[in-house]
Amino acid sequence: MNGHDPLRRRHVFVVHAEDRPGVLDRVASLFRRRSYNIESLTVGRTDQPGVSRMTIVIEGDDTTARLMEANLYKLVNVLHVENLTYKPAVVRDLALIKVKATAEVRAQVLQVTDVFRARVVDIGPEALIVEITGTEDKIQGLIEVLEPYGILELVRTGAVAMTRSAEEVADRPDFIAARFPESAA
C-alpha cells in the first residue's frame, strides 16, 4: 500500500496449490499485477500427489501481506496460504558459491568455509565450490567473507520454510478448505 512504511519487513508465505499447468504463472502474474515486491519464490512437489508447495518471500507491511494472502486465495488453484512471519518456523536458503582459490589462499578459504559450517563440494586447481545451507543472514555473511577472494559464480535457491509445530497433520492441505485471511482490522 505505502512505498516507505517503516513497518515494512520480510514476509514468508507457504502456499499449497494444485499442481497443474499454469499455476506458477498465475501466482507470478499476481505479484507483478499488484506490484508486490517479491524477494524469492520456490516451488516443488510435496508428499501429496497433485499438490505443489511454494515458499514466497515478499517485502511489505502487514496490510500488504494480508492483501497478498487474500489475493492468493482468489486464485482458484490455490488451496492453502500460511504466513509464517510471526510463527516459529525454520527458513532455509541454499547457495552454491564458486570461489577463486589458488593454492596459496586455498587453506584460508577452507578455514572460512569451516567456520560457517559450509561444505566444499568441488575442488579444482583454480577454484572451489562451496555449498551452504542456512538463513539469509548466514549466507550473506559467508558471501561477504568470500568476496575478497573473488566469487566466480553464485547461485541461490531462494528460501524454503516450514513451521516448527507438530500440527502438520491437521494442517495438511487435503484437510483444509480454502480460507480467507483473518478479519480485516
Partner: peptide, 14 residues
C-alpha cells in the same frame, strides 16, 4: 471479496 478490505481505504470493521 476479502481482497478489497483495506486495499484503498483502511477500515475499522470488515
Amino acid at each position: 471479496d476479502p481482497a478489497e478490505l483495506n486495499k484503498n481505504v483502511r477500515v475499522d470493521v470488515g
